[in-house]
């Protein structure tokens, strides 16, 4: 097909493009807002809550990326299992190492 055909497009296609951009720009805007949020929170002295806020916001941002940009939300079960298995063993690694590090005299 020629470039002219692509550039022209029909109404249905341009409608699709608009929805495509709308969806992704919305996610992107949310990500930037979260970025600003964590930046601001880092300057508010709340002790451990300050540290936690950075991690929690990072977790929220990556959830958005994983579910919507990487389309895990609509993926097949076997793909979800693959994604979750990495997370599960990561949590196990942290948890069991902390059993040592946090319980040392």
């Amino acid at each position: 097909m020629s470039d002219r055909e692509e550039a022209g497009g029909d109404a249905r296609s341009s409608d699709g493009v608009r929805r495509l951009w709308a969806r992704n720009l919305l996610i992107w805007a949310a990500l930037l807002v979260l970025l600003l949020l964590s930046l601001v929170a880092a300057y508010i002295p709340m002790g451990r809550v300050t540290t936690a806020s950075g991690i929690v916001v990072a977790a929220a941002k990556s959830t958005l990326v994983v579910l919507l940009f990487m389309e895990l939300a609509s993926a097949k079960p076997q793909i979800r299992i693959a994604a979750i298995s990495g997370l599960v063993f990561l949590v196990a690694m942290f948890a069991l190492t902390f059993v040592d590090v946090l319980a040392r005299p």
Partner: peptide
């Protein structure tokens, strides 16, 4: 198999709690 590695470390100076769990 992923959750038992600490039994290599009973004498390493890891916490007693970790030794018990492992």
């Amino acid at each position: 198999g992923f959750f038992v590695w600490g039994h290599h470390m009973f004498v390493s100076g890891q916490s007693a709690l970790a030794s018990l769990v492992f």
